[in-house]
């Protein structure tokens, strides 16, 4: 028998926490974006684990859609970062305060 699902869930909780930590503490906007991907992966791992624990293919289907949305999100997000960088020539998130009223 394979490892119980709770171990996977603890691992994905840890991965999510590390992603959140990176997102909150890093200043480089690209690394913040990578941390976001880590959090998405943690959720994907959770879905696959639930899919196995409940014997339902629905979880894996959801991961499929999450992958598509993540790909689209990365394309648009990196496009936005390129557009910002062309204007400000800086990849630090704290410098981006032009929207402040």
């Amino acid at each position: 028998m394979t490892v119980p699902g709770s171990w996977y869930l603890v691992l994905s909780a840890l991965l999510f926490s590390l992603g959140a930590l990176g997102f909150f503490t890093r200043r480089n906007i690209l690394i913040m974006f990578m941390s976001l991907e880590l959090m998405l992966n943690a959720v994907n791992l959770t879905f696959v684990t639930f899919s196995r624990m409940l014997g339902d293919i629905g979880g894996q289907t959801l991961v499929f859609f999450v992958l598509v949305v993540a790909a689209a999100e990365v394309v648009v997000g990196l496009g936005i970062i390129m557009a910002i960088f062309r204007r400000r020539s800086s990849a630090t998130a704290d410098d981006l305060s032009i929207f402040r009223g």
Binding site: T2, Y8, L45, V48, S51, R52, Q60, F64, L67
Partner: peptide
């Protein structure tokens, strides 16, 4: 490594 864990949980396509 997450892909390895997917295989371990019988999600080969993913």
């Amino acid at each position: 490594a997450v892909a390895v864990l997917f295989i371990e949980q019988d999600a080969q396509f993913l």
